[in-house]
Design a binder for these strands. Structure first.
Length: 628
DNA sequence: TTAGGGTTAG
């Protein structure tokens, strides 16, 4: 058994703990009388720390020191005291430490009891080491300990977090056979597991079934279900559960309201969210900083700045203090809106209020500088965060890399990528995709493809964005054939292609003169269940115009007006340029009139053609006036 | 002395 447990011990934390619990390297020697005196004097200390108050704010370091003190004292403290300490460490989510200390106890001859085994089973389950948890279960049963409802619920939790939801369901059924009646905690665990495995309807049904089996759903039950439903956008059902819990005399708390309010915001029902906010107030449930942050963030993202600012004043007036999340949400929204000055003011304000910016705050500000091509300031912000012990993450590096790529310095981007890797961070899909795009923009197909290959060999999954950038880059750099090979593989794969992918390929085909292939692909879209958008039509129309297939272009334009997407400025300008190149002044003028009546104007390339034609006398000045 | 869930920002 010792062996089977020990192979779980491999992490750095464990090595750290080993060092600590084994002392400074000297083997344990029989205590001298002075040591005995010293250790007895100590024993009062750990008892005090093990009391309820002492454990509540214990740090990991102190807990490990405490353990060292306990194993030094003679006689050994009781197993109950060890259990209390292990449990406190487990509550810090330091499961590997608990396992390590449990092993140490055994090697010192301190026997485990039912509670110790339950704690260890829970720890192995939380670390997804189900087989080790089962090994412990076998061992304790051999020693004559019957697993309790708590032991079995821990195991159930392990099944739920792994890939074995069917085993979890079976375990609950077997518990009844074993004469161990599942309780509310058991059902709550299983309900959570069902949500983790996308079995929402089974989870909801279980709320009723547990009541039949004599377990009343509680706040935890509803918290689990409401959150699970909101995550998948089932807000109506979540709201009906809110009503149901009120009927069942269970007071919803602010967190449950926050969950639903945030989902309503995310799914664009901001006004419903405001109504629910009022409803909770009327029920006497006070909104907190999370409620406000959620609403403010969404309002900003939808551009409802005045509503957001009203809410901000409202919360401050009510002495609900904005926190780092509130500020970060505001800063990010301002940055995305291009209002870097306001974002910086907010940053100063949070410093003034002694709210420490975190990695998300810094990332937004760095992004702001990059968006305005102020790379030096972005890098200064990067240094600042490092100096404040705020560790840059993959988003930070990705933002900087995107910034330098935008400034056409993809080689610097690669340097940053290497530096990031050296610091132990692994590039994600966005980082690789940014670099691929950077190389294509620099016309460097070879390196772009090299990065793509590296991405795949590094086990990072390309997403549809990656493929769109790859296909677009290949097409724009004269490599249609390579793009086609990838495109055909993609169509056979599980990756869901969006209309953008097809637009890129149609454009690639048209620009390479393969107008018929483009048209065949265009016509196949409806069969694939993809709706061509305005860009698809414009691309195809432009392809026809380029090949001087005016009738086809006009036919498509008419089809668009009848039952396609609304023509935009690009549609009109493409058609107008074709007419101008033909020297068909009357038709051009008519199209320009129609375009203007739709609220669009001539774009840069149309204007430039007109100016050229003015110069060589093919057009008169009135034409230019018509355009804008 | 052992078990369960849920909220905000990139």
């Amino acid at each position: 058994m010792m062996r089977s447990i020990s192979y779980a011990f491999a992490s750095t934390t464990k090595r750290f703990v080993r060092r600590k619990i084994q002392g400074k390297g000297s083997p344990r020697i029989a205590p001298s009388s002075f040591n005995l005196f010293w250790e007895r004097a100590f024993s009062g200390g750990y008892r005090e720390k093990l009391s309820r108050n002492g454990l509540s704010d214990l740090k990991l370091d102190e807990a490990v020191d405490l353990f060292s003190d306990m194993v030094k004292s003679r006689p050994f403290p009781s197993i109950v005291e060890f259990n209390k300490l292990l449990s406190a460490i487990a509550k810090m989510n330091k499961f590997d430490v608990v396992i390590s200390l449990g092993e140490r106890m055994q090697s010192l001859g301190i026997s485990h009891n039912l509670y110790t085994y339950s704690i260890l089973i829970n720890c192995f389950c939380r670390r997804s080491q189900l087989s080790l948890a089962l090994a412990i279960l076998g061992k304790m049963m051999k020693l004559g300990y019957e697993p309790s409802i708590v032991t079995l619920s821990s195991l159930l939790n392990g099944y739920c977090h792994g890939k074995r939801i069917s085993d979890a369901v079976a375990l609950v059924d077997r518990m009844v056979e074993m004469g161990c009646q599942p309780n509310t905690v058991t059902f709550n665990t299983l309900i959570h597991g069902l949500f983790l495995h996308s079995k929402a309807s089974e989870a909801v049904a279980l709320v009723d079934r547990m009541a039949v089996k004599g377990c009343q759903p509680n706040l935890v039950t509803y918290g689990t279900v409401v959150n699970g439903l909101c995550k998948r956008g089932d807000i109506d059902l979540a709201l009906s559960l809110l009503k149901k819990m009120e009927k069942g005399k269970i007071e919803p708390d602010v967190v449950i309201y926050n969950t639903i309010i945030d989902s309503l915001c995310k799914y664009r029902h901001v006004d419903d969210a405001r109504n629910l906010f009022n409803e909770m107030e009327n029920k006497g449930i006070r909104p907190n900083v999370v409620t406000y942050s959620s609403l403010i963030s969404c309002l900003c993202n939808y551009g409802r700045w005045s509503d957001a600012s009203r809410l901000l004043s409202d919360m401050i007036e009510r002495k609900i203090n904005p926190n780092v999340v509130t500020f970060s949400a505001l800063i990010d929204a301002f940055v995305k809106e291009g209002k870097l000055v306001e974002a910086e003011k907010l940053y100063e304000e949070m410093i003034k209020r002694s709210i420490d910016p975190n990695v998300i705050t810094y990332n937004s500000l760095i992004n702001g500088f990059c968006m305005h091509d102020r790379l030096n300031e972005a890098k200064q912000m990067f240094s600042l965060m490092v100096s404040k012990d705020c560790l840059p993450n993959v988003v930070t590096w990705g933002t900087l890399i995107k910034g330098v790529c935008k400034a056409k310095k993809v080689e610097d981007g690669m340097d940053l990528f290497r530096e990031m890797s050296q610091r132990g961070l692994v590039g994600d899909t966005i980082v690789y995709t940014t670099l691929i795009q950077g190389f294509f923009q620099a016309g460097d197909c070879d390196n772009a493809q090299m990065v793509f290959k590296k991405m795949v060999s590094d086990g990072v999954h390309p997403n549809i964005m990656t493929y769109n950038i790859l296909l677009d880059g290949l097409c724009n750099n004269g490599k249609l054939e390579t793009a086609l090979v990838i495109f055909h593989d993609l169509q056979k794969s599980k990756m869901e292609l969006d209309v953008v992918t097809y637009n890129i390929m149609i454009e690639g085909m048209c620009k390479a003169g393969k107008i018929e292939d483009g048209w065949i692909l265009f016509c196949s879209l409806s069969l694939k269940g993809v709706k061509p958008d305005v860009v698809t039509y414009n691309t195809m129309i432009s392809g026809f115009c380029r090949k001087d297939l005016k009738e086809e272009a006009d036919a498509l334009f008419n089809q668009m007006k009848e039952n396609g997407p609304r023509p935009n400025s690009g549609t009109y300008n493409t058609l107008i340029r074709a007419r101008l190149r033909d020297g068909d002044k009357a038709a051009s003028a008519e199209l320009i009139k129609e375009m203007r009546s739709c609220g669009f104007a001539g774009d840069a390339s149309t204007i430039s053609i007109v100016i050229n034609m003015l110069h060589d006398g093919r057009l008169d000045k009135s034409f230019l006036d018509m355009l804008s």
